[in-house]
Design a protein around this nucleic acid. Structure first.
Lengths: 211, 211
DNA sequence: GTTAATATTGAACAATGTTCACATGAGTAG
DNA sequence: CTACTCATGTGAACATTGTTCAATATTAAC
């Protein structure tokens, strides 16, 4: 089984189309929301038939889920780019980066968190796992800040703290509700983390002795 | 204009049907999720035609929004039932009650927070206002705990804190994700509030001097 | 170039939201 | 009680949108 062969013409066309469909679907979700995503709109914009979309993604949920998968991947990449020099600053940075990413891609994030499968089909495990992994990115800095704590507890704390930040941001950016001004939201998130770290017995970054 | 007249037969039938439709829709959402709600299922279960549903609610979103409105009303009633004797206990109670209510009516809460309107029609203001009012229920106890703080800041803090609790609970109960065991979730929420109150300079309930 | 394998098409189908001309039945006047 | 009026209910027809699949076109293999 020699799979090292160069990409065939077919594969190249297939790949290009696949990327094109995803790009178009992502654009529609991002600008007009998940509920405005229609198969025919996508296929027409991609210059192919509806059947091709189904050949490539199985069903329409497949398109949405692939977009969602890429959203959480992009989010994770951004979060991984947060400097890990100082653990407290890293926690602030993770929250601020999540806020920025959410503000830039609100509808994509909503698609990730709000999309439900038809009937009782399960949501793909790999996406769920990636979301959990992203939310676990607070684990490392928390371990450094609470060296004596149980690792399992830190894992739970990481998820809880990130979930809390998610709640503040997702409702704060909910334009349906009386939206909090972005700058004020940023400040609210900061104050929130401030208070919570203080409650955990961690000094704020300004007051901590430098290494 | 004498509107004090007794209810006509017509009105009684209309009201009964309206309630019946809502009850059926709520049941479907609660048990099978918003995405499984279909006009024909509702009208057949209610023993009427699809047209009647439209006469009564304008469009199908009208049914969903009415169910959502009643959900937030029920939630608010439950939250208002939390004893206001001790402000710290009240905060714990609000969070615990929210957790219980969410666990009991997960799909109804998801319908409330995740439903999006078609096109760009706005979400009804009164529902948004009721949600905000519910989230403002932490305001009173926080005022008692932080008597020197600015009232506007407390209002923001109330929303932020409740949003954080909402995030922890809604993701914690997300059966799509690796669900946190309910009992552990309860504990997590408590510890979260503990830490946060401590960070705000408020002593936990056990350590506070009783009046 | 011929053939086999594969991908693409788009018309037809299925599921579901929405409308509306007509039928029904409750109120009302005589 | 009957006849008339009009709000209300009806459900077939329509509109939109997801899905399928037999026919067609394209690529790969020889």
């Amino acid at each position: 089984m020699n799979n090292v062969q160069e990409e065939s013409l077919r594969d190249r066309k297939k790949n290009r189309r696949r990327l094109q469909i995803l790009e178009i679907a992502r654009g529609i979700i991002a600008t007009k929301g998940l509920r405005s995503l229609k198969v025919r709109d996508v296929s027409e914009a991609a210059g192919c038939s509806v059947g091709s979309v189904y050949n490539e993604f199985g069903d329409f949920d497949g398109v949405i889920l692939t977009v969602n998968r890429e959203t959480v991947q992009a989010l994770t990449a951004r979060l991984r780019g947060v400097p890990a020099d100082d653990p407290v600053r890293q926690l602030y940075g993770l929250a601020a980066t999540y806020l920025d990413f959410f503000a830039e891609h609100a509808n994509l994030l909503r698609s990730l968190f709000e999309h439900r499968m038809e009937d009782d089909r399960p949501y793909p495990d790999d996406i769920l796992q990636m979301v959990m992994d992203a939310f676990a990115l607070m684990h490392a800095p928390l371990v450094r800040l609470l060296p004596d704590a149980d690792d399992v507890k830190i894992a739970l704390l990481s998820r809880t703290l990130f979930s809390a930040v998610h709640g503040i941001i997702s409702l704060g950016l909910e334009e349906r509700m009386v939206a909090v001004p972005p700058q004020m939201l940023r400040q609210q998130v900061e104050q929130f983390i401030d208070a919570h770290l203080a409650g955990l017995g961690i000094l704020p970054v300004g007051a901590r002795p430098s290494r």
